[in-house]
Design a protein around this nucleic acid. Structure first.
Lengths: 327, 327
DNA sequence: TTGTATGCGTTATCAA
DNA sequence: TTGATAACGCATACAA
């Protein structure tokens, strides 16, 4: 391994001069600097991160923590984060699993973005108390070192339910996400509120789901078994709505005619299915970028770091028609 | 920040004793050790990674490099890697983009697994020459510090093409992956060989694809436009085969009757589509685990580290029927 | 069994 | 403008 000491010897200067030159400090002559840089390149010098970190107490690496690498993978979200980070001179690494949590307190990461319910509130607060900077995307958590960047789930769920009601639907269902999911609970809360405001004629049932295709299929079967006229179904994510489409394919029940469906997330496939699926849209990429931006502010001590909300919108589709259509 | 110095002071011992105690060195008394550990816990001590790394020249962190976080994301592969790594006391982080390459030479990573054609051979060899340990999943590269863990693409492609030929197909197509893709090139090579061995009656065409759904759709249109009897199509990955299914849905051409399709990868959806898709199967998880295992061997200087091949198998499906079916 | 002292590679203070 | 030196937190050879 080649260190600044080697460069110093070779260039006939002291290590401090080398350090200055490598860091572009103007105190050192253009001349010397040039010579030193040349020697550095010649020797294939690469700075040692551990040494630098030990001195400067920063790594310029940010970690994003996920529950798992499998399944729906938030690709655009991570990509949005990465691009924003890189733009600002930070690197992003994706981590998963309890074992990797150590990287935060050990000082390998300058900060972390959390999208992992298995990372407990208590542990996060512990890290925050030790001075580590965090952005949470999956919970509400108050601390000076924690910023929340949350999806506007309530607005989205309200849009979805109002869309069904506006189309005349009075028999409503919601297919939920897994227990403990922040997104699911927020969406569900707003859905219930919208139902309450909808008047006494509305009936509303909740079917427990899991945010996966299988639970959407199961929900479809349950709805069919109870069917006695057109219903409006708010699937709390698109994945389950797709499952519902698939389960209905072999039956006499048609989406947008008998079963009216709204999803959430606007995943790619919703634009291609027949009939086109109504869903709630937001920019995953922007979500990531905003999270990155706020975290870097926190890390750099910029006091303008603050909680952010990611806005959502309704995408209409033929998966929802007037209630009269299925009579 | 609390260091071993603080613990030493508080426990009334020297820092070396603390260091010994924390590292479970039997030289220190049960007594003292207990006291020191208690103090460490009380002060919420966490070792400083930078300092430890500077001394020991290892981080116990491995990086996996991907081209992008978006799109098909090798979830099971990464999960397989992660589990194997964790089992052996290493952490895995996922990286993407040129900027993050620095982590290898700077000593932040003990080794890396490469699945990113944008990481050039030259750069990899450079790192290997500096003593860094690598496992490549996406190319052949010879170096003492590099181990290859490659899918048996040739066997897979051969299985796929032979399956079509065995079913009597003589008009064959291959829909390729993007240019420069190692997997695509290997599969294509084996496909051609199989065709040559298949005899003079066979016609064979290649349609350039991109490993995505859209190019599968495009390929379907092209095949339809040339249609004059049943054809066998080897899509070099499942994604494109799914695209082909979709494009065919609105046409009079049926999969497994007019257009006979084999994919590659055995992604989940191939089991659910109608008709069930024939494809080439392998364990992504195992691929990851084997890569992790070999890399750790390299890192730890175990000379038994060696190139590995991940075996594949044919999954039959109704997407391929006898050639006579579509007459 | 415990303590003293040194060095890992870098940054940064201070003196020359 | 450059050089000598201390310090970051830890591991470890050696001394006590």
């Amino acid at each position: 391994m080649v260190s600044i000491k080697d460069i110093a010897r070779r260039a006939g200067v002291s290590i401090s001069t080398v350090s200055y030159a490598l860091n572009g400090n103007p105190k050192v002559t253009e001349e010397t600097s040039k010579r030193i840089l040349a020697v550095a390149k010649e020797l294939n010098y690469v700075p040692n991160a551990a040494a630098r970190t030990l001195k400067k107490r920063e790594t310029r690496i940010i970690g994003a923590f996920l529950t798992t690498f499998e399944g729906a993978f938030y690709g655009k979200l991570l990509q949005g984060m990465k691009e924003e980070m890189n733009k600002r001179g930070y690197d992003l690494v994706i981590c998963s699993g309890t074992q990797s949590h150590r990287m935060l307190p050990e000082g390998i990461l300058d900060g972390a973005i959390i999208l992992d319910r298995l990372f407990s509130d208590e542990e996060l607060l512990l890290h925050a108390n030790r001075g580590h900077k965090l952005v949470v995307l999956d919970r509400e958590l108050k601390h000076d070192n924690i910023v929340q960047v949350l999806l506007d789930n309530k607005a989205g769920a309200t849009f979805a339910m109002e869309y069904l009601i506006r189309n005349g639907h009075q028999k409503l269902y919601a297919v939920t996400g897994p227990e403990g999911s922040f997104d699911s609970e927020q969406r569900l809360g707003a859905a219930r509120q919208t139902v309450e405001r909808g008047g006494p004629l509305i009936t509303y049932k909740e079917i427990p789901g899991n945010f996966d295709k299988a639970s959407g299929e199961a929900a479809a079967l349950r709805i069919i078994s109870e069917y006695d006229g057109p219903v409006g179904v708010f699937c709390l994510n698109d994945e389950m709505a797709i499952g519902m489409y698939q389960a209905l394919r072999g039956t006499p029940y048609r989406v947008g005619e008998h079963i009216h469906v709204v999803g959430f997330d606007h995943i790619d496939i919703t634009d291609y299915v027949q009939p086109r699926m109504a869903t709630i849209d937001y920019s995953e990429r922007r979500w990531g970028a905003v999270a990155a931006e706020q975290l870097i502010k926190l890390v750099e001590g910029d006091s303008s770091a603050q909680h952010e909300r990611i806005y959502v919108g309704l995408v209409e589709g033929e998966s929802v028609g007037p209630a009269s259509a299925g009579m």
